[in-house]
Design a protein around this nucleic acid. Structure first.
Lengths: 241, 241
DNA sequence: CGCTCTATTGAGACTTGTCAATTATGGTGG
DNA sequence: CCACCATAATTGACAAGTCTCAATAGAGCG
């Protein structure tokens, strides 16, 4: 499976991408890098000259506060650019850290710039990619602002399951979830203690199973109802962009 | 003052934009529309064929939940596109509503598409605009997830003050804030009752004054410290994009 | 000069956080 | 293969921040 295969799946779920564009993407890519769990991939505020596509593993975007509080603002799975926005921002407003062992494919900004100079449609697809991040962020704002802890977790699990499905890493019933409860807490703005209790409730209600880094959604409909999960924000509509 | 003047100020704070590009933007614009307070400008899920630039007033992006809970995911001030992302998404994942009486300048997607076909740099500036929204969203996720109510409000007030300053609608000490406490509550994921108490605390501490839709930040440094406000996420660095 | 919307206040409930201890789990060296 | 270690998960008791419900006061507007 090529390094950009899951990105192509992700894009194909929203618009047609032709072989020539796929080729242009491949040509814009540089080498790959590997990071160990917990390693920092990008530090907030440091000028960047390339963006990274996640090929394998899980990556978190994390904001750190001076007193040690931390908030994960997005979780990335294979096929996601973890910092395509650095192409425009130059410096990130957050850290990017490896959750598991990960492999990343580098896209020098120079090559991305060339795409914007010569390939309007591919440019729009990349732009779309960053705009999808924004839609994801909005859903997380709602979860953090207006959902209870159990609704928040339920919503997040649904989101991950569907996103894994798009890149063909889930059959729609189970997906990887190799996170600690601490990391889940940082993603949801909760304490690990409370996450633990809520996860146990979800298990007791027969909604999920979760062991050995694998999440099994036993009853998607009920989990989605609990978390008010609506996949609309993922924009899974194939149409010209 | 031209309808795109504040957008140009906003972009100019991040990169040089030349007269020709400014002209191209003007030409991409269609007519203006006006909405009354509370009016819905864009409904979630409805296909869009144009994007809107806010010229006057305040607009909220709002997510509604089935049971009536609501969360504002972004507050827009003049110079902001309220739904530039609809150019790529086609349908929005949220409503766009007028908070005050507002005037909007329409940008048909057709014209934006023409820009992407012929003006790579201007395209990147528009892309940057949506990416800045994303950075704002991330800050809001942190506020909702990890900040206390008083920190959250303090942070939001600092953000608005600085953003108004960029578009030259603030002297750095005061800015418009014609919101109800209910709307502020919806932006912060709190109840209006609690917002009321926190606002009173901020007043009692001599950090802000707020009457008649005008916010006066009496002690910005202390307010910023309380809210851990760091303008870095606004990316106010003028450099080639 | 009412009327309606918004702001304010109080009392009590509830979700989530804090602190601290205990148990489980997975990897490692002997 | 087993004991050991560090990390992660789990549990309990209690505190705290925010919410809920309800009432009152204030402000803008026709």
């Amino acid at each position: 499976m090529s390094d950009i295969a899951r990105l192509v799946l992700k894009l194909s779920a929203r618009d047609a991408i032709n072989a020539e564009e796929e080729q242009a993407l491949s040509e814009a890519a540089g080498g790959t890098s590997t990071y160990e769990p917990g390693e920092e991939i990008v530090r907030e505020g440091v000028p960047q000259t390339l963006s990274r596509l996640l090929v394998e593993g899980i990556v978190a975007r994390m904001k750190l506060m001076a007193d040690g509080r931390r908030q994960i603002t997005e979780l990335h799975i294979p096929g996601d650019f973890v910092d395509l926005h650095s192409f425009l921002l130059k410096r990130l407003d957050h850290d990017v850290v490896a959750v598991t062992r990960v492999r990343l494919l580098n896209f020098p900004h120079e090559g991305l710039r060339r795409i914007t100079e010569s390939r309007p449609h591919l440019t729009r697809l990349l732009w779309l990619n960053t705009v999808l991040d924004g839609a994801g962020h909005r859903e997380w704002i709602v979860s953090a602002g207006r959902r209870t802890a159990i609704e928040h977790l339920a919503n997040l699990f649904c989101e991950l399951l569907v996103r894994y499905r798009v890149v063909e890493m889930s059959d729609g019933r189970s997906c990887p979830l190799p996170l600690t409860q601490q990391q889940l807490a940082d993603a949801c703005g909760l304490t690990p203690v409370h996450v633990n209790r809520v996860v146990q409730d979800l298990r007791a209600d027969g909604l999920i199973e979760w062991r050995g880094g694998e999440l099994v959604v036993a009853d998607f409909d009920r989990l989605a109802a609990l978390g008010q999960f609506d996949p609309a924000f993922l924009n899974l509509v194939r149409e010209p962009r």
